[in-house]
Simulated scan of single mutants.
Amino acid sequence: MGKVAIVTGGTRGIGRAICEKLQADGFTVVANYAGNDEAARKFTDETGIATYKWDVGDHEATQAGCAKVAAEVGPVDVVVNNAGITRDGTLMRMGFDDWNEVMRINLGGCFNMAKACFPGMKERGWGRIVNIGSINGQAGQYGQVNYAAAKSGIHGFTKALAQEGARFKITVNAIAPGYIDTDMVAAVPDEVLEKIVAKIPVGRLGKAEEIARGVSFLCSEDAAFVTGSTMSINGGQHMY
């Protein structure tokens, strides 16, 4: 059995592409999801990848979920923190719950997953943590003070945890995707999406598979000297 990898928010979009790529790389992959049982069943039927349900923003549920994966599948060697939500709105219109939920899941989920899996990686002397940030965490975005703050926090979290993990051969890196052709982006009104694409130098949206290839590299032995880094995959839209 290959090394065990958990991908949070792994049954759809970028998460699914990451799961499929890591599976092709020889990892034993587990996909975490929060709520859509039908999508999870379809995902497993189509990929053969097991799914485990818990809310990554819930500390106790994450501890229990990761322990269950370790008991049933094997010790967790790779964590890809991909799960995330949006609750967009200007500050004047944004309620505290909109702020708190995004911070709880998008940023808190990274802490909860690392807290659950880092000790085992340290004990075994090897690990990979890849956190999915965002171009909007680097450049900001109107109407997304919650999302931009959470994603920016992920980049800081990555740099700090990388310093803790380095001596134990645990690398911690981030990927900052630009606008990717997923369901989340598809929900953007056409006239807004046209303006976004017009600002991308390569002239198109990214593909989920392109993010997955970045994750694949960071999880490989080839990336053993890469830690505390943020890989921007955004078609040149923001050169950071």
Rank of each mutant, 00 (worst) to 15 (best):
R12W: 05
C19T: 02
V29A: 05
A34Y: 13
I49D: 01
I49W: 00
I49R: 02
Y52E: 11
G57I: 01
T62R: 09
G65Q: 00
A67V: 00
A67Y: 00
A70S: 13
G74A: 01
G74I: 00
T86N: 12
T86A: 14
R87K: 14
M92G: 15
D98T: 02
N100F: 13
V102G: 03
L107C: 06
L107M: 08
L107R: 09
M113L: 15
C117V: 06
G120N: 03
G120Y: 00
M121D: 08
E123K: 09
E123M: 02
R124S: 10
G125T: 09
S134P: 00
G137V: 10
Q138P: 04
G140C: 14
Q141P: 06
A148E: 09
S152T: 11
I154E: 04
A160Q: 10
A160E: 12
L161S: 06
L161D: 02
G165R: 02
G165C: 07
P177D: 07
Y179D: 07
I180A: 06
V197L: 04
P201S: 11
G203W: 06
R204A: 10
K207C: 05
K207V: 03
E210S: 08
A212V: 03
R213I: 10
S216R: 03
L218H: 09
S220Q: 07
D222W: 06
F225N: 09
V226M: 13
T227Q: 03
M231F: 15
S232V: 15
I233F: 10
H238M: 07
M239P: 08
